[in-house]
Nucleic acid binder design. Structure first.
Lengths: 119, 119
DNA sequence: TCGTCATTTCCAGTATCGTCGAAATATGGA
DNA sequence: TCCATATTTCGACGATACTGGAAATGACGA
């Protein structure tokens, strides 16, 4: 990932409503959430949410698919991971104490079954 | 970390010049970099950089200390870690495949000596 | 085809952000 | 104290972002 893409992603997330929506989608997993349901959960007008989802989508952080009358949004985890990776990328130039807490964070990911099913 | 703080941090990083400055500081480690040197490296006017550093500082991502005539800026790694942690926080609600790449990222941190000297 | 529901696009008003010249402040040395 | 260096604050202009009403689009069933 290049700096410009990181700025785009960070800008997309640097917004109260969008970050809330994104987190809901992160929790929803691959199943995703319909735009209308998301708007109801967040208590924002559908058109406002729609433009914010468009911004997240344009940043590559989420994607959408149609299901009947609804449009389902879901997180593009690969892109999310790439963004986090970009932010961590230069953490190792200094001392190890800096990196250690990041490892602790990653260990949180073992809270589910730690299968080796990598993509 | 609360959502509001995360938005503040992400907003601070969601800017070309500020993200560049932040990354330079991340590489510099605890030693830090003087404001003037940073301005020269990034080829931006000192006052422009100063206001951008103030934004990063206000977001809690960096801190400053005076050294003679210079002001040295350095990353507040604990806060940076907290922000990353916030972004990862809900990644485990779904399947393990989602979390696996994040672990791979964390393993990058072993590039230096993997001492157990946690803070 | 017509009506309805779900969502998006268009648009414009408002608010917030980014930049940098100029002036102000802080430090150290003569 | 006076000067030079380093950095920040002030101020104002231009640019960009956020919101939500109204209208348009897409999908399904009758």
């Amino acid at each position: 990932m290049e700096l410009k893409d990181a700025v785009t992603g960070l800008s997309a997330l640097a917004h109260d409503g969008r970050l809330k929506a994104f987190r809901l989608l992160v929790r929803a997993g691959a199943e995703g959430i319909a735009a209308g349901e998301l708007a109801r959960s967040l208590e924002v007008p559908p058109n406002t949410l729609s433009s914010n989802l468009a911004i997240l989508s344009h940043a590559g952080l989420i994607e959408s698919r149609r299901a009947g009358k609804s449009v389902i949004y879901s997180v593009r985890y690969a892109h999310m991971t790439a963004l986090l990776q970009f932010l961590m990328e230069d953490c190792c130039g200094g001392s190890t104490e800096i990196c250690a807490p990041l490892k602790d964070i990653a260990l949180m990911c073992d809270c589910q079954e730690p299968r080796g099913t990598l993509t």
